[in-house]
Design a protein around this nucleic acid. Sequence first.
DNA 1: GCGCTTTAATAACGCGCGTTAGTTGGTGGT
DNA 2: ACCACCAACTAACGCGCGTTATTAAAGCGC
Lengths: 330, 330
Amino acid sequence: MSDVARHAGVSRTTVSFVLNDRPGAAIPDETRRRILDAIDELGYRPNAGARALAANRSGWFGLITEIVTGPFAAEVITGAQSRAWTDRRFLLIAASEGDPAQEAAALDQMLEHRVEGLLYATTWHRAVTLPEAAREVPTVLVNCYDAEGELPCVLPDEVSGGYRAARRLLDAGHTRIGFINLDPVIPAAIGRREGYERALREAGITPDPSLVIPGYATADGAYTAACELLDRPGGDRPTALFCGNDRMAMGAYDAIKERGLRIPHDVAVVGFDNQELIAGYLRPKLTTLALPFEAMGTKGVDMLADLAAGQPLDTRRVTIDCPLIERSSV
Amino acid sequence: MSDVARHAGVSRTTVSFVLNDRPGAAIPDETRRRILDAIDELGYRPNAGARALAANRSGWFGLITEIVTGPFAAEVITGAQSRAWTDRRFLLIAASEGDPAQEAAALDQMLEHRVEGLLYATTWHRAVTLPEAAREVPTVLVNCYDAEGELPCVLPDEVSGGYRAARRLLDAGHTRIGFINLDPVIPAAIGRREGYERALREAGITPDPSLVIPGYATADGAYTAACELLDRPGGDRPTALFCGNDRMAMGAYDAIKERGLRIPHDVAVVGFDNQELIAGYLRPKLTTLALPFEAMGTKGVDMLADLAAGQPLDTRRVTIDCPLIERSSV
DNA sequence: GCGCTTTAATAACGCGCGTTAGTTGGTGGT
DNA sequence: ACCACCAACTAACGCGCGTTATTAAAGCGC
């Protein structure tokens, strides 16, 4: 920077003013041009670290996830990254790998780097408890919430997701809709079932509990569940299956095809999660609901930016809709 | 740091010596303990940025990928991250999203943060050309290579992957092995075919070119290709299919099942890529080869660390084996 | 010509740390 | 009694920048 100043025949301060577009600083165009030319000529690049030190503003946000591997975390990162970029901020990403020690270590490193805010994301919707150190800095939870309800969080709207799935099938004329759910105790399963039942009732149908079977998140579990639903005695088998995730839809597909039934003509299927690698390549392609991970990442940074700027949040618990991704299985 | 020094009754220098375990500094245990106690008591955390500035060593490596979304990039990140951690380094991750402008901007930011090395990773094995600015800092290519062959790179060993796949099927007694390949012009397709043919020849079988059909990386393309192979006139249809990726294996599965054939009894299948969401949930689970993304990320940081330390590389072009992931389709 | 305001610029301090060149007090040897 | 030596520390500088207080020159009305 001193070299640039010398080269342009001005002081270092003036260079700083130009670089930062300092409001109130009167820099004639001619001087500004000379400085910018010098920067170009010398290939000068400001030192972000020194800048942060002097301005007492690191420009970092931290992002802790359980697993970097896996499409969900990646989407959160994408959303958060792009949003952070517009504020000229950078994201410090670390994976806890489910190990509390590693998580604490990552957090320590982040605090040493003076992150101005922390995003804490999980791969599945649930309650979490954060390490103590997280209280030192503004924190937003993504896809999870703290049991005490003290921290702001951004969550998928499971209820409207379940509602939307059932509604899509009702609109297609189905009245007996089997629901192969996730483990019944987790928030996703509870919320989606609530939405599913509400849609049925709105259509004048009384939910039949025997049509809701847990598939425990695996293709095998869903296969078994689908067999049970499709082989119901009395010939009142469902004409549509709503599966709690796309993996389970794979199992359901197998059960349906095995019986010589066709998708969607004989049995329609709706999944959840919109995992491209499954939904996009099943045959026929799977109509499913997307978890809005990218939007959640974006919104999380949004909230963090407000928090870091000292502004209060308008909503401390934000829910984001799960959009229906229309393909060919309904 | 000054507070800690005052609290412990020593100078700031002594605190620095303790924090950095400075070799040659004689610090009595008693003094050291007092300092560590003070750090604890005051909740002192070193400022990583200031440290980098003073030591002229940022501790950052940059990692640029095309897409953060997607399992491949995530694995590279995991490998690189964990390896970097052991050197007390951090990874600055950015996605180019295939946009040269965004890529250049990301690189600029990284250089402003004074990264000491750059990892450039692609999602599929191919040639790349880097922006000019990348020459300012040691660079290692991951899963790609530069056309000029100037930069060090770490690549998957496609040839041994193809060899290993064919070999596995030969060992299982198959002699007519169909190969649904990727787009024939890309390095992965070329290398794997070479390995496939070598394995056949070693087994005394002359490769039959009509058994190799491109599936163009899609399930649909592979379905068509598989139909062609399975419906060959003359009853000499292959008893095994080697697919250039797992998505194509999905298409092949459909073609096989449609004909009432069983996997692996009537037709064995080997995939490539080891995409958990596909390979692990197909029924039966898919035996496939893994692209060693995590290992490539690790090795990339390895090489970068040497480069950044000023040491020459022993090998400028490293290839890493693709391990066979045994499941139930052979 | 004088005072006053605006424009254009600068010198100097501090951000939090690593590092070098010292200083101080004590011990052993002759 | 003198010097050499070592253990245990410290003062002071600089890393690259943002920022504040200050100055010199130019413009303006009378």
